[in-house]
């Protein structure tokens, strides 16, 4: 561990804020108020790093969360509770098939399969949901990952005001048409043809206010 401490010192002199670490590097003691966050693990009373990047300490509820922010792009997969961006591929009466393209602000290298079931489209009037009036193929949606019960693909939910269709083009103007403008919770309008189409529209909010909602 001698080398590590030497390296850290040299880095600290160059770059006052960032402490760099490599996987397996011991970061600090694990205590009641010091918790291992993302990119770290706890072993034998110490917190170690699992990623190469910069160490960040976040304080929340009187606890210090030790986190490692990966330098470059980290390899992650969707986990239950994540807000993801997906493109709708296929819609039928019971569910919509989508491909997951982003987790939060992280763009995935490979898309993953996901489906939105009819009962997960919205929180109210679940029995009156009509899939064709909620999504259309080609729409870009925001959704939350539900706990995985089936191995084959991710189950997604848009049953929140902030989740649903974000980008859509009207069926007349096709995929290259201009994106429609939301006019209500259930309708979007094409700026060229002024045609209104039904959608499960998402209320766009800042990412920070979205994340704290369910995960805590």
């Amino acid at each position: 561990m001698e080398i590590d401490s030497n390296n850290e010192k040299s880095i600290n002199s160059d770059n006052a804020e960032a402490i760099l670490c490599l996987p397996g590097q011991r970061l600090c003691l694990s205590e009641e108020t010091t918790v291992a966050g993302q990119g770290t693990y706890e072993r034998g009373g110490y917190i170690y790093a699992t990623l190469a990047g910069s160490v960040q300490v976040k304080e929340k509820d009187k606890c210090k969360y030790i986190e490692v922010k990966c330098a470059g792009s980290q390899t992650i997969v969707p986990v239950a509770g994540d807000v993801i961006t997906a493109r709708v591929l296929q819609v039928n009466q019971r569910f919509a098939k989508c491909s997951i393209i982003c987790i939060g602000d992280h763009i995935l290298e490979r898309t993953y399969r996901g489906i939105v079931r009819k009962e997960d489209v919205r929180a109210t009037e679940k029995d009156r949901v009509e899939m064709y009036k909620s999504f259309r193929p080609g729409d870009v949606i925001l959704a939350r990952v539900l706990p995985q019960t089936e191995l084959s693909c991710y189950q997604l939910s848009t049953a929140e005001n902030e989740l649903g269709v974000v980008v859509a083009t009207s069926s007349e103007s096709g995929a290259n048409g201009p994106p429609m403008v939301p006019v209500s919770w259930t309708e979007m309008q094409c700026p060229n043809t002024l045609v209104k189409e039904p959608r499960k529209v998402a209320k766009i909010v800042a990412e920070s206010s979205l994340k704290t909602e369910k995960l805590t």
């Binding site: 490599l22 996987p23 397996g24 693990y41 170690y48 990623l51 190469a52 990966c70 470059g72 390899t75």
Partner: peptide, 11 residues
Amino acid sequence: LVDAGIATYDL
């Protein structure tokens, strides 16, 4: 593995 940003316990 480290370059790919995959979490590893150690080097």
